[in-house]
Protein backbone atom coordinates (compact mmCIF):
# COMPACT_ATOMS: atom_id res chain seq x y z
CA UNK A 1 0.00 0.00 0.00
CA UNK A 2 2.02 2.95 -1.07
CA UNK A 3 0.79 6.36 -0.24
CA UNK A 4 0.62 8.98 -2.95
CA UNK A 5 -1.00 11.88 -1.14
CA UNK A 6 -1.15 12.88 2.47
CA UNK A 7 -3.05 15.91 3.68
CA UNK A 8 -2.84 16.71 7.37
CA UNK A 9 -4.77 19.31 9.34
CA UNK A 10 -5.68 21.43 6.35
CA UNK A 11 -7.18 24.73 7.40
CA UNK A 12 -8.44 27.32 4.97
CA UNK A 13 -9.49 30.84 5.83
CA UNK A 14 -11.15 33.37 3.58
CA UNK A 15 -11.38 37.11 4.03
CA UNK A 16 -14.78 38.34 3.00
CA UNK A 17 -16.07 41.85 3.57
CA UNK A 18 -13.74 42.43 6.42
CA UNK A 19 -14.56 39.27 8.31
CA UNK A 20 -12.79 35.94 8.29
CA UNK A 21 -14.54 32.68 7.73
CA UNK A 22 -13.13 29.21 8.00
CA UNK A 23 -14.68 26.95 5.43
CA UNK A 24 -12.14 24.21 6.11
CA UNK A 25 -11.15 23.55 9.72
CA UNK A 26 -8.67 20.77 9.92
CA UNK A 27 -9.21 18.17 7.22
CA UNK A 28 -6.90 15.20 6.83
CA UNK A 29 -7.06 12.72 4.01
CA UNK A 30 -4.75 10.12 2.52
CA UNK A 31 -4.75 8.51 -0.89
CA UNK A 32 -2.91 5.40 -1.99
CA UNK A 33 -1.55 4.76 -5.45
CA UNK A 34 -4.27 3.64 -7.82
CA UNK A 35 -6.97 4.27 -5.25
CA UNK A 36 -10.17 6.18 -5.85
CA UNK A 37 -11.01 8.29 -2.83
CA UNK A 38 -14.37 9.96 -2.66
CA UNK A 39 -14.98 13.12 -0.67
CA UNK A 40 -18.67 13.38 0.05
CA UNK A 41 -20.36 16.43 1.44
CA UNK A 42 -23.18 18.85 0.93
CA UNK A 43 -22.85 22.49 -0.03
CA UNK A 44 -20.73 24.40 2.43
CA UNK A 45 -18.86 21.35 3.66
CA UNK A 46 -15.55 22.62 2.32
CA UNK A 47 -14.95 19.69 -0.02
CA UNK A 48 -14.32 21.76 -3.14
CA UNK A 49 -11.95 24.14 -1.41
CA UNK A 50 -10.05 21.21 0.03
CA UNK A 51 -9.58 19.83 -3.44
CA UNK A 52 -8.57 23.14 -4.91
CA UNK A 53 -5.98 23.73 -2.26
CA UNK A 54 -4.16 20.61 -3.39
CA UNK A 55 -3.15 22.32 -6.59
CA UNK A 56 -3.11 25.88 -5.40
CA UNK A 57 -6.40 27.08 -6.84
CA UNK A 58 -7.62 28.94 -3.79
CA UNK A 59 -9.09 32.39 -4.33
CA UNK A 60 -6.73 35.29 -3.79
CA UNK A 61 -8.22 36.22 -0.46
CA UNK A 62 -7.80 32.68 0.84
CA UNK A 63 -5.08 31.30 3.06
CA UNK A 64 -4.30 27.68 3.69
CA UNK A 65 -2.37 26.04 6.50
CA UNK A 66 -1.48 22.44 7.00
CA UNK A 67 0.75 19.76 5.59
CA UNK A 68 0.51 18.57 2.02
CA UNK A 69 2.65 15.65 0.98
CA UNK A 70 2.74 14.23 -2.51
CA UNK A 71 4.77 11.38 -3.84
CA UNK A 72 6.40 12.27 -7.09
CA UNK A 73 8.00 9.56 -9.17
CA UNK A 74 7.28 6.76 -6.81
CA UNK A 75 9.11 8.03 -3.78
CA UNK A 76 7.79 8.70 -0.32
CA UNK A 77 5.31 11.54 -0.09
CA UNK A 78 7.13 14.77 0.51
CA UNK A 79 6.17 18.41 0.81
CA UNK A 80 5.40 20.07 -2.48
CA UNK A 81 4.37 23.41 -3.88
CA UNK A 82 0.72 23.17 -4.95
CA UNK A 83 1.10 25.69 -7.73
CA UNK A 84 4.09 23.85 -9.07
CA UNK A 85 2.58 20.43 -9.31
CA UNK A 86 -0.13 21.29 -11.84
CA UNK A 87 0.58 19.41 -14.98
CA UNK A 88 3.44 17.69 -13.24
CA UNK A 89 1.85 14.83 -11.43
CA UNK A 90 -1.55 16.17 -10.42
CA UNK A 91 -4.33 17.23 -12.78
CA UNK A 92 -7.88 18.38 -12.23
CA UNK A 93 -11.23 17.91 -13.93
CA UNK A 94 -13.80 20.60 -13.20
CA UNK A 95 -17.53 20.63 -12.78
CA UNK A 96 -18.85 22.75 -15.58
CA UNK A 97 -17.82 21.40 -18.95
CA UNK A 98 -19.63 24.27 -20.63
CA UNK A 99 -17.29 26.86 -19.20
CA UNK A 100 -14.11 25.03 -18.29
CA UNK A 101 -12.67 24.77 -21.79
CA UNK A 102 -11.08 27.75 -23.48
CA UNK A 103 -13.53 28.53 -26.28
CA UNK A 104 -10.86 30.05 -28.48
CA UNK A 105 -8.83 26.89 -28.76
CA UNK A 106 -9.57 23.81 -30.79
CA UNK A 107 -9.99 20.53 -29.00
CA UNK A 108 -6.73 19.10 -30.25
CA UNK A 109 -4.76 22.12 -29.17
CA UNK A 110 -6.34 22.06 -25.74
CA UNK A 111 -5.11 18.53 -25.22
CA UNK A 112 -1.67 18.97 -26.67
CA UNK A 113 -0.72 22.22 -25.00
CA UNK A 114 0.08 20.56 -21.69
CA UNK A 115 2.57 17.97 -22.97
CA UNK A 116 4.20 20.50 -25.23
CA UNK A 117 4.69 22.94 -22.37
CA UNK A 118 5.64 20.56 -19.58
CA UNK A 119 7.49 17.88 -21.49
CA UNK A 120 8.65 19.81 -24.49
CA UNK A 121 7.09 17.42 -26.97
CA UNK A 122 7.26 18.33 -30.62
CA UNK A 123 4.09 19.07 -32.50
CA UNK A 124 4.02 15.64 -34.07
CA UNK A 125 4.63 13.83 -30.82
CA UNK A 126 1.97 15.86 -29.07
CA UNK A 127 -0.48 15.15 -31.83
CA UNK A 128 0.12 11.43 -31.58
CA UNK A 129 -0.50 11.53 -27.86
CA UNK A 130 -3.57 13.68 -28.35
CA UNK A 131 -5.16 11.26 -30.77
CA UNK A 132 -4.37 8.34 -28.51
CA UNK A 133 -5.89 10.10 -25.52
CA UNK A 134 -9.00 11.00 -27.43
CA UNK A 135 -9.56 7.37 -28.31
CA UNK A 136 -9.00 6.43 -24.75
CA UNK A 137 -11.61 8.79 -23.38
CA UNK A 138 -14.19 7.71 -25.91
CA UNK A 139 -13.89 10.37 -28.60
CA UNK A 140 -13.59 8.32 -31.76
CA UNK A 141 -13.09 9.91 -35.15
CA UNK A 142 -10.34 11.74 -33.30
CA UNK A 143 -8.64 13.37 -36.26
CA UNK A 144 -11.81 15.16 -37.20
CA UNK A 145 -12.85 15.92 -33.64
CA UNK A 146 -9.49 17.40 -32.79
CA UNK A 147 -10.18 20.23 -35.19
CA UNK A 148 -13.49 21.10 -33.59
CA UNK A 149 -14.19 23.95 -31.24
CA UNK A 150 -15.53 23.34 -27.73
CA UNK A 151 -18.85 24.98 -28.44
CA UNK A 152 -19.51 22.44 -31.15
CA UNK A 153 -19.56 19.63 -28.62
CA UNK A 154 -22.21 18.54 -26.17
CA UNK A 155 -21.70 18.54 -22.40
CA UNK A 156 -20.71 14.91 -22.22
CA UNK A 157 -18.18 15.22 -25.00
CA UNK A 158 -16.72 18.34 -23.49
CA UNK A 159 -16.26 16.53 -20.23
CA UNK A 160 -14.39 13.80 -22.04
CA UNK A 161 -12.19 16.46 -23.60
CA UNK A 162 -11.55 17.87 -20.15
CA UNK A 163 -10.54 14.44 -18.94
CA UNK A 164 -8.23 14.06 -21.90
CA UNK A 165 -6.69 17.43 -21.12
CA UNK A 166 -6.18 16.34 -17.54
CA UNK A 167 -4.59 13.08 -18.64
CA UNK A 168 -2.36 14.66 -21.23
CA UNK A 169 0.42 15.32 -18.76
CA UNK A 170 0.35 11.78 -17.40
CA UNK A 171 -0.71 12.59 -13.88
CA UNK A 172 -0.36 10.10 -11.10
CA UNK A 173 -3.23 11.74 -9.27
CA UNK A 174 -6.42 13.03 -10.86
CA UNK A 175 -8.60 15.44 -8.91
CA UNK A 176 -12.26 15.55 -9.91
CA UNK A 177 -14.50 18.33 -8.63
CA UNK A 178 -18.08 17.19 -9.14
CA UNK A 179 -17.35 16.32 -12.78
CA UNK A 180 -20.69 14.68 -13.44
CA UNK A 181 -23.03 16.93 -11.50
CA UNK A 182 -23.92 19.04 -14.51
CA UNK A 183 -24.44 16.07 -16.79
CA UNK A 184 -27.46 13.96 -17.61
CA UNK A 185 -27.80 10.69 -15.78
CA UNK A 186 -26.99 8.56 -18.80
CA UNK A 187 -23.92 10.62 -19.61
CA UNK A 188 -22.84 10.60 -15.98
CA UNK A 189 -23.01 6.87 -16.09
CA UNK A 190 -20.69 6.80 -19.10
CA UNK A 191 -18.18 9.15 -17.52
CA UNK A 192 -18.07 7.17 -14.30
CA UNK A 193 -17.43 4.00 -16.27
CA UNK A 194 -14.69 5.81 -18.11
CA UNK A 195 -13.00 6.94 -14.93
CA UNK A 196 -13.07 3.42 -13.58
CA UNK A 197 -11.53 2.15 -16.79
CA UNK A 198 -8.81 4.77 -16.73
CA UNK A 199 -7.89 3.84 -13.24
CA UNK A 200 -7.59 0.21 -14.26
CA UNK A 201 -5.61 0.96 -17.40
CA UNK A 202 -3.35 3.71 -16.16
CA UNK A 203 -3.02 2.92 -12.47
CA UNK A 204 -3.87 6.50 -11.64
CA UNK A 205 -5.20 7.56 -8.24
CA UNK A 206 -8.33 9.68 -8.20
CA UNK A 207 -9.86 12.01 -5.64
CA UNK A 208 -13.51 12.42 -6.51
CA UNK A 209 -15.55 15.15 -4.85
CA UNK A 210 -19.32 14.93 -5.00
CA UNK A 211 -22.47 15.72 -3.07
CA UNK A 212 -24.03 12.55 -4.43
CA UNK A 213 -23.28 9.68 -2.11
CA UNK A 214 -24.73 7.16 -4.53
CA UNK A 215 -22.32 8.27 -7.24
CA UNK A 216 -19.45 8.00 -4.80
CA UNK A 217 -20.69 4.59 -3.84
CA UNK A 218 -20.53 3.48 -7.43
CA UNK A 219 -17.08 4.69 -8.16
CA UNK A 220 -14.90 5.06 -5.11
CA UNK A 221 -12.87 2.58 -3.08
CA UNK A 222 -12.81 4.71 0.01
CA UNK A 223 -14.84 7.67 1.21
CA UNK A 224 -14.25 10.69 3.43
CA UNK A 225 -17.41 12.44 4.57
CA UNK A 226 -17.02 16.17 5.14
CA UNK A 227 -19.25 18.51 7.07
CA UNK A 228 -18.74 22.12 8.15
CA UNK A 229 -15.12 22.09 7.07
CA UNK A 230 -14.12 18.88 8.80
CA UNK A 231 -13.82 15.23 7.94
CA UNK A 232 -16.35 13.35 10.05
CA UNK A 233 -15.80 9.80 8.91
CA UNK A 234 -13.62 7.80 6.56
CA UNK A 235 -13.60 4.21 5.48
CA UNK A 236 -13.94 1.73 2.62
CA UNK A 237 -17.05 2.55 0.66
CA UNK A 238 -19.01 -0.61 1.23
CA UNK A 239 -18.29 -0.58 4.96
CA UNK A 240 -19.15 3.06 5.35
CA UNK A 241 -22.40 2.79 3.46
CA UNK A 242 -23.62 -0.35 5.14
CA UNK A 243 -22.33 0.42 8.61
CA UNK A 244 -21.90 4.16 9.08
CA UNK A 245 -20.22 5.25 12.27
CA UNK A 246 -21.30 8.85 12.33
CA UNK A 247 -24.89 10.07 12.63
CA UNK A 248 -24.34 12.56 9.83
CA UNK A 249 -23.29 9.82 7.46
CA UNK A 250 -26.30 7.82 8.57
CA UNK A 251 -28.51 10.86 8.04
CA UNK A 252 -27.13 11.37 4.54
CA UNK A 253 -27.69 7.76 3.65
CA UNK A 254 -31.22 7.92 4.97
CA UNK A 255 -31.92 11.00 2.85
CA UNK A 256 -31.15 9.36 -0.41
CA UNK A 257 -34.21 8.19 -2.28
CA UNK A 258 -33.74 4.85 -3.88
CA UNK A 259 -36.02 3.22 -6.26
CA UNK A 260 -35.32 -0.21 -5.03
CA UNK A 261 -36.57 0.30 -1.53
CA UNK A 262 -39.90 1.97 -1.35
CA UNK A 263 -40.65 0.77 2.17
CA UNK A 264 -38.33 3.31 3.66
CA UNK A 265 -39.24 6.95 3.13
CA UNK A 266 -36.20 9.15 2.82
CA UNK A 267 -35.76 11.41 5.78
CA UNK A 268 -34.01 14.69 5.67
CA UNK A 269 -31.76 16.18 8.30
CA UNK A 270 -33.49 19.13 9.91
CA UNK A 271 -31.69 22.41 10.48
CA UNK A 272 -28.71 23.90 8.70
CA UNK A 273 -24.94 23.65 8.81
CA UNK A 274 -23.22 25.98 11.30
CA UNK A 275 -22.09 29.46 10.35
CA UNK A 276 -18.54 29.29 8.93
CA UNK A 277 -17.73 32.61 10.53
CA UNK A 278 -18.25 31.25 14.01
CA UNK A 279 -15.61 29.30 15.92
CA UNK A 280 -16.57 26.08 17.56
CA UNK A 281 -14.67 23.28 19.16
CA UNK A 282 -17.03 20.41 19.78
CA UNK A 283 -18.86 18.33 17.20
CA UNK A 284 -20.13 20.60 14.41
CA UNK A 285 -23.12 18.34 13.87
CA UNK A 286 -24.29 18.46 17.48
CA UNK A 287 -27.11 20.93 16.88
CA UNK A 288 -28.76 18.78 14.26
CA UNK A 289 -27.95 15.34 15.56
CA UNK A 290 -30.72 13.19 16.94
CA UNK A 291 -28.40 11.55 19.43
CA UNK A 292 -26.52 14.49 20.91
CA UNK A 293 -25.25 14.04 24.43
CA UNK A 294 -23.81 16.61 26.79
CA UNK A 295 -20.19 15.87 26.06
CA UNK A 296 -20.68 16.12 22.31
CA UNK A 297 -20.39 19.88 22.37
CA UNK A 298 -17.65 20.13 24.95
CA UNK A 299 -15.26 17.41 23.86
CA UNK A 300 -12.74 18.85 21.37
CA UNK A 301 -13.17 17.54 17.87
CA UNK A 302 -10.91 14.62 16.97
CA UNK A 303 -10.89 11.50 14.85
CA UNK A 304 -10.52 8.03 16.31
CA UNK A 305 -9.85 4.73 14.62
CA UNK A 306 -7.30 3.33 12.22
CA UNK A 307 -6.21 4.93 8.99
CA UNK A 308 -8.70 2.76 7.18
CA UNK A 309 -11.69 3.48 9.31
CA UNK A 310 -12.10 6.67 11.30
CA UNK A 311 -14.92 8.55 12.87
CA UNK A 312 -15.23 11.84 14.70
CA UNK A 313 -18.27 10.72 16.63
CA UNK A 314 -17.57 10.01 20.26
CA UNK A 315 -20.74 7.99 20.64
CA UNK A 316 -20.97 5.84 17.52
CA UNK A 317 -22.76 3.18 19.52
CA UNK A 318 -26.02 5.14 19.10
CA UNK A 319 -26.16 4.03 15.51
CA UNK A 320 -26.08 0.40 16.37
CA UNK A 321 -29.15 0.82 18.48
CA UNK A 322 -30.90 2.97 15.88
CA UNK A 323 -32.76 4.92 18.53
CA UNK A 324 -31.69 7.71 20.85
CA UNK A 325 -29.64 6.01 23.47
Amino acid sequence: MSRILEVSDLEIELELDGSTISPVRGASITVDRGEILGIAGESGSGKSLTLKSLIGLLPRHGMAKGTLLFSQDGGEPSPYDPADVRGRGISMVFQEPMTALNPTMRVGDLISIGPRFHEGLSRRQAKARTLDLMERVGLPDAERRAKMWPHELSGGLRQRVMIAVALSTKPELLLCDEPTTALDVSVQDQILGLLQQLRTDLGMAIVFVSHDLAVIGELCDRVAVMYAGRVLETGPTTDLLSDPRHPYTAGLIASIPSFDRLDIEPRGIPGQPPDPAVESSGCPFADRCAFTKDDCRTTPFHLTGTRDRQTACIHPEVLRDGRPA
Binding site: P270, A286, D287, R323
Partner: peptide
Protein backbone atom coordinates in the same frame (compact mmCIF):
# COMPACT_ATOMS: atom_id res chain seq x y z
CA UNK B 1 -34.68 20.66 18.45
CA UNK B 2 -32.90 17.50 19.48
CA UNK B 3 -31.11 15.53 22.19
CA UNK B 4 -31.81 16.38 25.80
CA UNK B 5 -35.46 17.27 25.35
CA UNK B 6 -36.13 13.82 24.02
CA UNK B 7 -37.62 15.01 20.77
CA UNK B 8 -35.96 13.20 17.91
CA UNK B 9 -36.46 14.86 14.56
CA UNK B 10 -34.90 12.07 12.59
CA UNK B 11 -37.53 9.59 13.61
CA UNK B 12 -41.12 10.66 13.88
CA UNK B 13 -44.38 8.86 14.36
CA UNK B 14 -45.57 9.42 10.91
CA UNK B 15 -42.23 8.24 9.61
Amino acid sequence: MSGPTGHNPLITDSG
